[in-house]
Design a protein around this nucleic acid. Sequence first.
DNA 1: TTTTACTTGACAAATACTCGACAAGAAGTT
DNA 2: AACTTCTTGTCGAGTATTTGTCAAGTAAAA
Lengths: 315, 315
Amino acid sequence: MKNENKYPIKAVAQKTGLSVHVIRAWEKRYNAVVPNRTETNRRLYSESDIEKLQILLKLTDQGHNIGGIANLSIDELRDLVEDRQEPRMENYKVQREVRQPTDPDKYFTSCLKSVYALDLKELESTLYKASVSFSQPVLLDRIIIPLITHIGDLWKEGEIRVYHEHMVTASLRGFLSNLIDTSKNSESAPKILATTPQGQLHELGALIVSAVASSEGWNVTYLGPNLPAEEIVGAAEQLNCKAIAISIVYPLDDYMLRKELIKFKQILPDNISLLVGGKGARGYLDVLEEIGARVILDIANFKKSLSAIRENKYN
Amino acid sequence: MKNENKYPIKAVAQKTGLSVHVIRAWEKRYNAVVPNRTETNRRLYSESDIEKLQILLKLTDQGHNIGGIANLSIDELRDLVEDRQEPRMENYKVQREVRQPTDPDKYFTSCLKSVYALDLKELESTLYKASVSFSQPVLLDRIIIPLITHIGDLWKEGEIRVYHEHMVTASLRGFLSNLIDTSKNSESAPKILATTPQGQLHELGALIVSAVASSEGWNVTYLGPNLPAEEIVGAAEQLNCKAIAISIVYPLDDYMLRKELIKFKQILPDNISLLVGGKGARGYLDVLEEIGARVILDIANFKKSLSAIRENKYN
DNA sequence: TTTTACTTGACAAATACTCGACAAGAAGTT
DNA sequence: AACTTCTTGTCGAGTATTTGTCAAGTAAAA
């Protein structure tokens, strides 16, 4: 058994939500928890000390007076805790069973309709429903990505107005950032940074990339669109990222963007991979080759590159 | 296996957010991290050195005293780190709502720290906790709005880099769009559209506006930044909005923006109110008067205008 | 030369410790 | 209902320890 007296009083206070005053008072008055001390008389608590304090807090919230329960053992305390009602599994089950196997395409067209109608509520609730019915890959591949590319096409052809595109972006951004959920993947997962280079205001591509990378177990930081090369690299370095993913949508050939991309050659460290995707990437193949970037043509391709980088075949 | 000792102390300071003084002090006093040296006695840190320092910093924020943890191994340290993701709701809600340092300022400074460290996870989890502990107005007035204005100031003074500002934007956007939650307010609630005019890429102001309006019971459609006047009005008309809120941050006087604003005079229907806010709005008072816009100076002001419009005293 | 990094020693602010006191509320008594 | 008494969270004063910061002098780099 390890000697686990590792927590100073401040950490205990933060973990339990008690104030340091109260922790000391409980010790002095009732010997609720008597921690070991360092040579210089500082308190050092063990994990079970903390657990006991947590239970005591819960019990006092439930009406017990601290003086009466403080000197009980952990086991005795546990018996006192009223267990709250069980999680409501039934609800979930019912949903699952009732749900009929539907076609992703139906959701897709339904989303599209909402976009035309500028009906945000409808769009979001459809997306939400879809996210319950389908796995994340299906959701991405069959609904969200088609939706985005379709919107992109319509926009280029002038079939829809700018505000349509903005609305979809805003809406999907919210939806996808839920999907990404930074806290999901562990600290130790490899990190990737997603953004678009300066001048590129269309961020949906970068959002897709973020969602895919997240579902592949990466730790994604999404920085929004329109960042200069130095900033992208600076952020990637500070975050210790293994890779940078940038998305280029439009236009197909832009002198400024070309200049912006070339900057990467100078400032990108060896141990960071650069992935470039999006419809617009084709227009810059020569520059991309020169700066040593990987060009991503589709999602499958992107996933492959991710796992290659992860296994250090590259970098 | 390359044992890469390639980071000089300055780089380490930038990556970790610690000062060079502190890094050296930790080495001298506790041998926290003992880097290799060049032939001329300069420190050269490895990646794992940096990682250890980052973990140490996080742990000190979590209440550990540096002297007590500095000589632990990386693995031992990792075990100590709180991976606070699964708040078992029962514990959390009951405890946190009642107890905890109920000081919004603490959350504010804690958020600011996370921004400096580029620690998205930490930032979002702090915001989440704050949203549990405080009412929405307090959350907005005491934490989020100060955070945004502070970031804005730092940015203007060149104290932080562009990617800091982007990170906060991306993160807050996700967070606020949850807060706004389009489906919350009823169909019959008055509608408002929030955005920024063409050329204005800073969207945080518009996001605040959205959050406030939503908490006042409006039905908010957030269209993201950088929309031409025709598009804004077009969208407002199609959505049957009672009001349009646009945010101007910077620069204080821009010819293009002036032109953009004047367009509203031509195309804005009588039954739609135009509200203009943000630090940058002061620079355009003359134009704004001409186009019949309401200038919003602060949040209280904004709320008043909203209820006035709602009651049809105006429009 | 000017800037940056290194070491050492010193200082001051922050933090933790003990003890004692106070006040609001709960519980018991008249 | 009014009055004790008890419980318990909070605070302050005084002391000790911990820790971030800085200055001075030297060495290396630009």
